[in-house]
Design a protein around this nucleic acid. Structure first.
Length: 916
RNA sequence: GGGCGAGUAGCUCAGCUGGUUAGAGCGCCUGCCUUACACGCAGGAUGUCGGGGGUUCGAAUCCCUCCUCGCCCACCA
């Protein structure tokens, strides 16, 4: 037998070594691997629970946003794993078309090269090499925060398997008439040299100018029409000026010609309902190739559509432009051209007033360049038919979004959905599976590569463009499981998945589109719950980002405090859907909650384990009622309550019968409440009360020691299970050190079962009376400034069953440092406290009376000063000025110190005489 | 322009469908290195729950209104 003293538990918890050790043991045991054949959907005996990880960009480096996102997923998946589900958390990365291409192009730029110098094949090879060298590093980083992903199923959007899915999806949609090639004005990034979807061109409010330009009538130069524009450089592409058909100011000029300044071209005045006669001058210049509205008007009126800018957004005579752009402007950047054209107009006397104007300008979401509307040929997905089932999913309760308020945003977007431009003029991505015949121009859309024209056998050429990155991401919940092979075991076992955890920023980019794809290709929603968490921000509430330099590297936090501290801080500190505010300049403070809790947990374990020893313990359920003390029954009851609270906070894992009932829509996944319940139990109940009260029982030999050991181990075992999802490493390490016990059901805590609510014992709340007595005594001690070391005598006179207090006398004495007498008279003056059960708690005062009064007086005198100081100090400390307090504060502090030290001396003298 | 969210202790935030004395962490104050833990223990202070109305026996919680922030969406040139 090993005696408690010989057990070796390091006094300091070493996160680095512990985390490395346990993570590799979990991996070695295959603890994270889901088992296809265990899924109840294919005849197994476990209900599947699946989360697909939002794939980070393959070249990404872990930041706090990832840390938060993946911690949430890990807490959920570990919870389900312990609940006995066939839990699958499927990890992977996204090839991230534009983002990755940009990274490699930047590398090339340092070598003074462009991708065109390399050519398409060499560029793709180089990018692929870069990705295979450095890519996926983020997945390794996720291991260090404890992510329990099934790494055997790691996916990548550009892998052969997923590329097959992409091609299948494209062809299917084309065959269903949902993909088409369109000729229209799209958002064009002149830096990335590609088109963008509406979602990728982000609005940003900017102060610009509204330039008024007068266009003279061709046949009467004395008259002119004034138009207003924020983009004068596009005037060279004007093909008309439009007015409202009912606008009397212009009724006589409709149909007549205007002379477009600079270009010196005649353009007509046309009438169109689109024009708002009350806005500006009521006349609008029409530039069909560089404005989506003008494009529509142009189509209605059969106007030509001259392109006057190059793809790089320099002025240029493009398609249909003739010589509109004068030689001096060709090649000039659009913003420089704007300035020059304004000057030219001024010189020609055609420039009117210039007003400052606030308006939204669209920017490229990858490089922030101002997007240029541009006429071109692109591939589009017809979205309205796809949106229908996605809307129905939310309306019927098949799909819930947490927090609920995002549902309205989701519905609004889907209701007003526009077609999705999916072609990108990039090289890094899935090439569009369309081939054009060189001879007859016929188009072949194919699942397999095409080498010759199907009709004429002539040479074919594949479409040069690649697909939007999100065209592969939207297939993620099923492409990663084996689709388009609909017989794939994983697909049958795990689709539909369960929860999707992500940030609201990609609700449209990704989440809504996944729902649409789920219905379009699998006939069902890809998941039943979308959990949208907040954003990580700094103390100024600015979103953390590497470029702003206000980020926190999660790996720094892991290094300093351990992964558990990071995880606990993040989970406990974040309400559902709320942002998480952390201070990048004070990691100690930001992660104190997690660090402190991990240390506390370690110390609880260290104490408990050394006292309990390593002989096997009894099963607590076998212990007869009479062997349990009040403290035992109380802590067992608190454990039951805590389990219930944790279960309630997590909520139902899935809807009972396919659809969520209205009452369930807002329940569950309150991870902060779960963490707080578990923390409160181990710290404020187990450590502060039970552990303290059980100390004497553990040093004495006999059956009561065994009872205490059994309860202690049982309760701590359960607590570690409850805490495991949020702090997996430290709980696993402590759990492994617990002595042999009948309830140990797994070699690893990681795969052990979630605690169940145990037997309810009679009188489980009686221990509360002990707590109240101790609280009462402690309060009296504080009130009368009794030194901590001094043992006082106290008397409890109870109208209830005095046996309760008698039996717990030792515990009360231990916790309050009082010699307790039950019943009897009190000699001389005494301080009294009425306990909640009606008992009278009396503390004989002797000489203490005066001390108490004096103390009360001092307190009253200084209360206001202290109050003000506290507030002021708090504010100053918070602003970092704690050492530079204004003189008045320092003075006030001094006064207070002097007062206190004088009074304290007097008190001390009195106390000493009392002690003697 | 439309929609949504937030405003609760010095700071960051919980407080769900209205019900004892409004909570936590950090910070602050007092006292303790009490052989598990000073990243701790014990005790303590601090809130006209953004302002103003209303509903109710009762409101931080429901309704109206105003103020201040933040986010999302949007083709008025």
């Amino acid at each position: 037998m090993t005696t408690p003293e010989t057990l070796s538990i390091p006094p300091q918890y070493d996160p680095a070594a512990t985390e490395r050790e346990w993570y590799s043991r979990w991996l070695a045991a295959g603890a994270f691997t889901a088992h296809t054949d265990q899924s109840s959907r294919v005849g197994g005996d476990r209900v599947p629970f699946t989360i697909v990880m939002p794939p980070p960009n393959v070249t990404a480096v872990l930041h706090m946003g990832h840390g938060l996102n993946n911690t949430v997923q890990d807490v959920i998946i570990r919870w389900r794993r312990m609940r006995g589900d066939d839990a699958l958390w499927l990890p992977g990365t996204d090839h991230a078309g534009i983002a990755t291409q940009n990274v490699v192009e930047k590398q090339l730029a340092r070598e003074f090269k462009t991708r065109f110098d390399l050519g398409r094949e060499a560029f793709i090879a180089r990018t692929a090499e870069f990705v295979s060298d450095t890519g996926g590093a983020i997945l390794d980083q996720l291991r260090s925060i404890g992510a329990s992903c099934d790494w055997t199923r790691t996916a990548y959007t550009l892998s052969p398997e997923l590329s097959l899915a992409v091609r299948e999806a494209f062809v299917q949609l084309y065959e269903r008439g949902l993909i088409y090639r369109g000729h229209r004005v799209i958002h064009w990034c002149p830096r990335c040299l590609t088109s963008l979807s509406d979602e990728e061109a982000e609005h940003e409010d900017e102060t610009g100018a509204l330039y008024h330009i007068s266009y003279p009538l061709a046949d009467d130069p004395s008259r002119s029409i004034t138009v207003a524009t924020t983009r004068p450089e596009t005037m060279l592409g004007d093909v008309a000026v439009a007015v409202h058909p009912g606008d009397e100011r212009y009724s006589d000029v409709i149909g007549r010609a205007l002379l477009l300044p600079i270009a010196n071209i005649e353009i007509p005045v046309i009438a169109d309902e689109y024009v708002d006669p009350t806005f500006g001058t009521g006349a609008v210049k029409i530039t069909p190739a560089h404005d989506p509205n003008d494009f529509e008007i142009g189509k209605r009126h059969g106007l030509s559509m001259p392109v006057v800018m190059s793809p790089q957004a320099t002025m240029d005579n493009g398609v249909d432009a003739g010589e509109r752009v004068p030689a001096q402007l060709v090649g000039v950047d659009r913003f420089e051209a704007r300035a020059q054209i304004v000057e030219m107009l001024r010189a020609a006397g055609r420039l009117g007033k210039i007003e400052t104007h606030r308006h939204a300008v669209r920017h490229c979401y990858r490089c922030d360049t101002v997007v240029e509307p541009r006429l071109s040929d692109q591939w589009f997905v017809r979205m309205a038919p796809l949106a229908e089932p996605a809307l129905e999913a939310v309306r019927s309760g098949r799909l819930r979004i947490i927090p609920e308020r995002w549902e309205a945003v989701y519905v609004n977007w889907l209701t007003n959905i526009r077609d999705w431009n999916i072609s990108r003029q990039l090289w890094w991505g899935h090439r569009i599976p369309v081939w054009y015949c060189e001879d007859n121009g016929c188009v072949t859309v194919s699942r397999t590569d095409v080498t010759e024209c199907a009709t004429c056998g002539g040479a074919v050429r594949q479409d040069e463009d690649v697909l939007d990155t999100w065209f592969s991401s939207w297939l993620w919940p099923f492409s990663t499981l084996g689709w388009p092979n609909t017989d794939a075991e994983d697909l049958r076992a795990f689709y539909p998945t369960d929860d999707l955890v992500t940030a609201p920023e990609i609700l449209f980019f990704w989440v809504a589109r996944m729902v649409m794809a789920g219905y379009a290709f699998m006939g069902d929603a890809p998941f039943h719950t979308v959990y949208l968490h907040g954003t990580v921000r700094d103390t100024d509430h600015v979103k953390m980002s590497k470029s702003l330099g206000n980020g926190i590297d999660p790996l720094d936090v892991v290094r300093l405090f351990g992964a558990d501290a990071l995880r606990y801080t993040v989970i406990a500190g974040m309400g559902v859907g709320a942002d998480l505010v952390l201070d990048p300049n004070d990691l100690d403070k930001s992660f104190a909650p997690g660090r402190n809790f991990a240390t506390k947990l370690w110390n609880i374990g260290r104490f408990l384990l050394t006292k309990v020893g390593d002989e096997p313990v009894l099963d607590v359920t076998d212990l007869p009622f009479w062997m349990l003390t009040r403290a035992d029954r109380w802590i067992l009851a608190r454990l039951n309550l805590t389990i219930a609270e944790c279960d309630a906070a997590f909520g139902p894992a899935r809807p009972d019968d396919g659809d969520w009932r209205p009452a369930q829509l807002r329940t569950g996944l309150r991870l902060n409440e779960y963490a707080e319940s578990a923390r409160r139990f181990v710290w404020n109940e187990l450590a502060d009360w039970y552990l303290e009260s059980v100390k004497p029982r553990l040093v004495a030999n006999g059956t009561d020691r065994d009872t205490a050991r059994a309860v202690l181990v049982h309760v701590f075992d359960a607590a570690l299970r409850l805490l495991h999802p949020v702090v997996p490493f430290i709980t696993e390490d402590l759990w492994q050190r617990l002595p042999e016990r009948p309830t140990k059901d797994s070699a690893l805590l990681c795969t052990a079962t979630w605690p169940k609510i145990g037997k309810h014992h009679q009188g489980a709340t009686e221990f509360e009376r002990v707590r109240e007595a101790v609280d009462g005594l402690r309060a009296l001690r504080a009130q009368y400034s009794i030194p901590p070391g001094k043992i006082v005598k106290a008397v409890i006179r109870t109208t209830n069953d005095p046996a309760l207090y008698i039996a717990e006398c030792e515990v009360i004495a231990q916790l309050s440092r009082a010699q307790l007498k039950i019943g009897g008279a009190v000699d001389g003056p005494a301080a009294h406290t009425l306990l909640p059960d009606g008992s009278d708690l009396a503390l004989p005062l002797g000489d203490l009376v005066n001390v108490g009064e004096e103390r009360a007086k001092v307190d009253a005198d200084l209360a206001r000063l202290v109050k003000q100081l506290t507030a002021l100090r708090g504010r100053l400390a918070n602003e970092g000025f704690v050492n530079r307090a204004p003189a008045s504060v320092v003075d006030a502090e001094r006064v207070k110190e002097r007062e206190w030290s004088a009074r304290a001396d007097a008190l001390r003298t009195k106390m000493e005489s009392f002690d003697g």
